[in-house]
């Protein structure tokens, strides 16, 4: 029962309450950069969910069974970023070889994920916060879903903004930031849900 409760709490908090993009500011760059079209937002989201989950599943055991026993935790940032970079490269090669259709739709977004701070951020937070493997993996997955939710919602708003008349000074980025502010405000409404 506690396991089930844990799972629910992790899902709800990572997707809604502590949404990694809108309340913890991780992964802002792709959030602002790839949100112009819903189709590219969908592609990016899919790639991020996959990489984040795998990265969470790989980095947690490495931290627990390699870095911690040998007292090397100060190397975690360095180790994790290299693992993520390598992982992204591997996924790219595998997709290209075995599932070319998926590669064509997600491929361009994959290299961008290496410097997506949400991925590194989630792996670093995982090893601090979660003591069990399944929790870490689940949190990474839920963080990916939360990222996808925010990105897809926001891309819808930006597609609408395209057709609006906007004061000259606000064209481009400023209005997108203001829109993000309103989106973030709506997510702030989840604060306190389930007493998290």
């Amino acid at each position: 029962m506690t396991v089930f409760r844990n799972i629910c709490v992790i899902l709800v908090s990572a997707i809604l309450v502590d949404n990694y993009v809108l309340s913890q500011f991780l992964g802002i760059c792709p959030f602002l950069g790839v949100s112009k079209k819903t189709s590219s937002a969908l592609g990016m989201s899919g790639a991020v969910i996959a990489v984040m989950t795998i990265a969470g599943a790989v980095t947690w055991p490495i931290h627990k069974y390699v870095l911690e026993p040998y007292d090397l935790t100060y190397l975690s940032t360095m180790a994790f970023i290299l693992i993520i970079a390598m992982l992204v490269q591997c996924i790219e090669i595998l997709l290209k070889r075995f599932i070319p259709a998926l590669y064509n739709s997600l491929g361009v977004y994959l290299p961008l994920i290496t410097t997506n701070c949400a991925v590194l951020g989630v792996t670093l937070l995982n090893v601090d916060q979660y003591g069990k493997f399944y929790e870490a993996v689940l949190n990474s997955f839920a963080a990916g879903i939360g990222f996808a939710l925010a990105l897809i919602l926001f891309s819808g708003i930006r597609e609408k903004l395209e057709t609006c008349e906007i004061p000259k000074a606000f064209q481009g980025m400023p209005i997108a930031l203001i829109a993000a502010s309103i989106t973030a405000l709506s997510f702030a409404g989840f604060a306190g849900l389930f007493g998290i």
Binding site: C29, L112, K168, Q171, G172, M173
Partner: peptide, 13 residues
């Protein structure tokens, strides 16, 4: 005003 596709570092790698 900054072009819309300047949105930044999505592309940094």
């Amino acid at each position: 005003p900054a072009k819309k596709n300047d949105a930044g570092c999505a592309g940094c790698p």
